[in-house]
């Protein structure tokens, strides 16, 4: 599904004093089946942007096109529900999303709510549990009796179980162990490539951006600073410096080597494999 922002501004309405807009005149077109990393400093508006796509936050002006639906200031409940059944959102502290008495009931809630048949509900619960790397023995446990990382996996499973066309994930790797994080990102990438799910991921980890995303969306104070393809984004060193962004580990290493040796590599390496290939090409290995 495509997502299109048309001059969207949004705010958390709090009394008569209106602060500067949290999302400020954003126009943006996100193509179907793309994988966008949403980055920016604390408070830039990343979470708010995701909430707009899911209809949790309403625009004060402008509109958002999500597939065939339009979200604007006056969008009705039916539209919101339909959008939410297509857009799966995992929150920044997803454990706050958990509510049911058992893990099983928690994961089943979404599919039931969206009128899956009993059989489909069961299937999707087991399948998503497995996908997020949790053992079936946890199904009858209370989600609140799990560790932080286990809770996050349950929240993610609950969202995957609804088979969304768009996935918006707020720091899905945070709090997961290295293996878990890698598995989750590989899974998201697979959904993106095989099932053509449109993915937006908020992350602070530039390595995730470099390895998984095909586009980067940089926000600052509610405005879009840039929306670019990943390699182009990381190739422009002057821009990165100006935006004060940390480099992915691989690229950081490449830049250190370039500086020390005075050689300029042909390509911006986004993965370790790419960097090793270039080191060989430059006869440094």
């Amino acid at each position: 599904m495509q997502i299109k922002f048309d001059q969207v501004s949004a705010d958390y309405q709090l009394g008569p004093i209106r602060a500067k807009n949290i999302i400020d005149d954003v126009s943006l077109q996100i193509a179907p089946a793309t994988f966008t990393a949403v980055i920016g400093q604390t408070g830039a508006g990343k979470t708010s942007l995701l909430k707009l796509i899911n209809g949790i936050l309403r625009p004060t002006s402008g509109s958002i096109q999500v597939g065939e639906f339009t979200l604007d200031h006056s969008a009705n409940k039916a539209t919101l529900n339909q959008v939410r059944s297509r857009v799966g959102m995992v929150f920044q502290f997803p454990e706050n999303q958990l509510f049911a008495e058992t893990v099983e009931a928690d994961i089943a809630f979404g599919p039931k709510n969206f009128n899956f048949s009993a059989e489909e509900v069961d299937q999707s619960v087991y399948r998503s549990l497995e996908r997020v790397g949790l053992d079936q023995s946890l199904l009858k446990r209370s989600p609140f009796s799990l560790s932080g990382g286990q809770q996050r996996r349950v929240a993610l499973a609950g969202v995957l179980a609804t088979k969304p066309d768009i996935l918006v994930l707020d720091e899905p790797g945070a709090g997961l162990d290295a293996r878990g994080k890698q598995e989750i990102f590989a899974l998201i990438k697979k959904l993106n490539q095989q099932d053509r799910v449109t993915v937006l991921v908020v992350t602070h980890d530039m390595n995730d951006v470099a390895i998984y995303a095909d586009h980067v969306l940089l926000l600052d104070q509610g405005k879009v600073i840039t929306y670019q393809e990943t390699r182009a984004f990381f190739s422009d060193q002057d821009q990165l410096t100006e935006w004060n962004l940390e480099l992915p580990d691989t690229l950081h290493l490449q830049r250190q080597i370039e500086q020390r040796t005075g050689i300029n590599f042909k390509q911006t390496s986004l993965t370790r494999t790419e960097l090793i290939d270039q080191l060989i090409e430059e006869k440094l290995l």
Binding site: Q41, T42, Q92, G148, A174, H204, M206, E246
Partner: peptide, 13 residues
């Protein structure tokens, strides 16, 4: 306890 995970990398470092 994982108190830095939501910080942007510069702030964290």
């Amino acid at each position: 306890d994982e108190a830095f995970i939501m910080l942007d990398p510069q702030s964290r470092t």
